[in-house]
Structure formats: C-alpha cells, structure tokens
C-alpha cells in the first residue's frame, strides 16, 4: 500500500478500517454494512445529509456507540480499546465543555484527564489555545462565549493530547467564512506537520473540496469514496455537490427498481 506520509514505519495500517460495519439503534439499522478505510495523515471528509448516520459512524470509531457489529479498527486496534483513549481526539457536534468554568480551567481539567504531566500542562494548554486562536479569551467563562467560540474550545480539548486520530463531528457548522477558512487551515497543518489523521463530518457540500478524500454517505451506507477529483470524474459532474446528487439519484433509482422487482415477484403466482 502506498504510504502518503512516507514514514514507512512498521504497523502503519490505515487510521480507520471498517468492513461489514453495522449499528442498530431502537430496532432500526442506522449503519447498514459499511466497508471503507481512512488513510493515515489525510483530511477525510464524511459527507451526507442530516440523519444519514454520520454521527453514529463517528461514535462507533471512538468507541462510544453501543451495538456495533462487523469489524472496525482504529489505529490498528479494535475501536473502543482502552489503549486508544489517549491516541484519539473526539469533538461532539454540541460543544462538550463545562460552561461554568473558564476556557483555561476546562483545558486544565481535560489535560489532567489525558495524563499530560503537571509540569507541561500550562504549555500544552497555551499551545492549543493558540491553535484555535482563543489565547486572548483564556480566562473568560465558557458560558459567556459565542457559540462559535465555544465549539473552538471543544476542538482545543481534542487537540490537547496531540492525538494521532481526530474525529470531528461538524466542527465548522455555524461558523463565519473567515473562521471556517482558518480552521480548515489548522486541520491541514495538523495533517502535514504532525501526521495527524482527521475524519471530519459535514452536511455542507462546499466544504468537500477542502478534504483530501471523501466518504459520501446516504441512509446508513457509503455511496462512494475517493478524492474530490475522482468523484467528479466518475460522475461527470462539475462539483462535488452535483456528483453527490447524481449518485443519490442513481441510488434511488436502483432502490425503486429493486422494490418494484420485489412487488412483481409477489404478484406473479
């Protein structure tokens, strides 16, 4: 297998590898047999409409999702292994920070939990504050921040342990264009400079072109995976959004045909 980062170190399996991944929730199957890989050191976008299973997939990768069947590995270990807890960072869709603490107090606590030694904690916190551009607001109460600032605090928490795999659930939703650009800049810096793998979900298709690779999802299945150029070429579309829509149409058509076929089979004696 080609190794993008060129490190050639042993054990450089893909950052995430899934095969036959299924998740049931409340009697319904939310993920319906997924096969995909996320290569190390890439920024991989997980795109699809709301409710298609993106969050469930991310929760499965970080080991927070119950009732996962099939095979799912993160950094070469079964997802949810205790050893992975210090190697991956997870940012939930809603900012999961303590609103009754200051930004610095939040980060101090999470750093202690992640096992950052006491002596290095202040530097670690300062570094992630600079990464998300919140140094000036370090002593503000999280409750007093804007929604966008609070989600950046949540992102800063995930950066604390310098994780190898970052799983970010819609980190740029609701942010202004300038901030979005600077965050995408940060994501690519993390991948290029630290070799971090980033799996980022979004339902905004215009963010697709900022990703190295894409996983397009619909209704609990992966419709397509590849680079943005691949997907455009394969579908003959001008944009990823159009490519996605064409894939959806083709998928729907196939589904309808299958259903019709089933109905006909029932009618014929």
């Amino acid at each position: 297998m080609m190794n993008k980062t060129g490190a050639g170190a042993p054990g450089r399996e893909p950052a995430v590898r899934a095969s036959g991944l299924r998740v049931a929730r409340g009697g319904a199957e939310v993920l319906r047999g997924l096969d995909f890989t996320v290569e190390r050191g890439t920024v991989t976008g997980l795109l699809g409409p709301s409710g298609c299973g993106k969050t469930t997939l991310m929760r499965a990768v970080v080991g927070a999702q119950a009732r996962v069947t099939g095979s799912l590995e993160a950094l070469g270990r079964p997802a949810g292994s205790p050893a992975l807890r210090r190697r991956l960072g997870y940012v939930t869709q809603a900012p999961s920070v303590y609103t009754d603490l200051t930004i610095r107090q939040n980060l101090d606590y999470y750093a202690a939990v992640l096992g950052v030694p006491r002596a290095g904690r202040r530097d670690a916190v300062d570094a992630v504050l600079a990464d998300v551009d919140l140094t000036a607001r370090a002593d503000a109460l999280a409750a007093d921040l804007s929604g966008g600032q609070r989600s950046r605090v949540s992102l800063a928490v995930a950066l604390l342990g310098t994780p190898e795999l970052l799983v970010l659930d819609e980190p740029t939703v609701g942010l202004d264009p300038v901030l979005r650009r600077s965050l995408w800049g940060l994501f690519h810096r993390l991948a290029a400079e630290r070799g971090t793998t980033l799996l980022i979900s979004s339902h905004v298709m215009d963010e697709a072109d900022r990703c190295d690779r894409l996983l397009l999802m619909r209704a609990g299945r992966i419709l397509a995976e590849g680079t943005p150029d691949d997907l455009r070429e394969r579908t003959g579309a001008a944009s990823v959004e159009e490519a996605f829509l064409r894939l959806v149409d083709a998928d729907e058509k196939e589904e309808n045909e299958n259903e019709e076929g089933e109905r006909k089979a029932k009618v014929t004696p």
Binding site: V62, G63, A64, P82, R85, R86, L88, Y90, T92, A94, P95, S96, V97, Y98, T99, Y110, V113, L114, G115, V157
Partner: peptide
C-alpha cells in the same frame, strides 16, 4: 446531557 460525560468516557478516565 451536555456531552461532557460522553467525551470523558472516550478519554483515559
């Protein structure tokens, strides 16, 4: 309910 527990449970706590 705030998601902080879910986050802590993915960490080595």
């Amino acid at each position: 309910t705030s998601g902080t527990l879910e986050r802590l449970m993915t960490m080595p706590l």
